[in-house]
Design a protein around this nucleic acid. Structure first.
Length: 290
DNA sequence: ATTGAGTCCTGAAGGC
DNA sequence: TGCCTTCAGGACTCAA
């Protein structure tokens, strides 16, 4: 399930193949994903050269030479594969044949094919005017980038003050911090020794100033994301030799998915518990997360 | 105004 | 073995 680190890994994998190349052919194999494809989707992309590839939260942004930007979200089952180039080390699987869930195929001037596959179709694509990208409906309401300079103790405390929702929901709220998903919220709270059921307001003093918890949590968010991005980078190479998928981190989880197993903290005898918050699983150690 | 519940979708996994 | 049910999850929409 792609969260920020996996999306960033995909972006980095695509960058050397896409940037500088032109899109020579677009194969759109169904009318919609989570939302309909924009009008004339194929025609608007065909012939365009890719100038830059960036990321905002969990969105991949493909900046094109005509002042438009292709916006891609992977949802939860979206995968992007590169086929038929030696640039990432021979992705050759599946070449020629199409999977039923290969929804978009971009043929590039350098001979590569970019295949978007998404069984559950929670992903989406849209095309925006680059100059107005930040005000696009999908991006306008997004909060700060967790790895950028805007995530400060002051900002987090200001949003947390007076909040009645729990920490878990607060950190999943893309309008505050953009890019965190279920897994990395669990991991960051575990490392911070914070119980996901606590009130979000515990991150602020009564006057809305940062406290000790705020300054513990932020570095853990950054560390877990950065470690995951690094792990994605290494598995990217592994995957290039097997099936071509990009991004895979689950061997690094310290808490997520470990219900009933012992807490990994050296001195802790707790067992990992699972609860459901906001319809999503929370994994935590009831002994050391308070 | 927040906040929670419902919704979309399909493959995997578990139960019988 | 195979059918059936449940669950996973991002982010939007709608109701309280």
């Amino acid at each position: 399930m792609p969260e920020l680190p996996e999306v960033e890994t995909v972006r980095r994998g695509l960058e050397p193949v896409l940037v500088g190349a032109s899109i020579t052919r677009v194969e759109q194999r169904r009318p919609d994903l989570r939302i309909p494809f924009p009008e004339n989707f194929s025609a608007r992309l065909t012939g365009r050269r890719v100038e830059r590839l960036t990321r905002r939260a969990k969105y991949i942004l493909v900046h094109l030479d005509d002042g438009t930007t292709l916006i891609i979200h992977l949802g939860m089952s979206g995968r992007i594969s590169i086929i038929g180039t030696g640039m990432l080390g021979a992705f050759t699987h599946n070449q020629g044949g199409r999977d039923a869930h290969d929804h978009v195929v971009l043929r590039l001037s350098n001979g590569a094919e970019i295949v978007y596959n998404d069984p559950r179709r929670f992903g989406l694509m849209d095309i925006a005017v680059s100059a107005a990208l930040e005000s696009h409906p999908l991006l306008a309401g997004l909060g700060v980038e967790p790895l950028g300079p805007d995530l400060t103790p002051e900002l987090l405390a200001r949003h947390a003050a007076g909040r009645r929702s729990d920490l878990k929901s607060f950190l999943l709220d893309q309008r505050i911090i953009a890019g965190l998903g279920n897994i990395y919220v669990c991991e960051a709270l575990y490392r911070s020794r914070l119980n996901p059921a606590r009130a979000a307001s515990c991150l602020a003093t009564p006057t809305g100033k940062p406290n000790a918890r705020t300054s513990v949590l932020i570095p853990h968010i950054r560390t877990v994301l950065n470690e995951a991005i690094e792990a994605g980078g290494s598995t990217l190479r592994d995957y290039a030799q097997t099936d071509g998928s990009l991004g895979y981190f689950q061997h690094r989880f310290q808490i997520y998915g470990r219900e009933g197993e012992p807490c990994l903290s050296p001195a802790c005898r707790g067992k990992v518990r699972r609860t459901v918050q906001a319809g999503r699983s929370s994994f935590f150690c009831p002994v050391c997360q308070r």
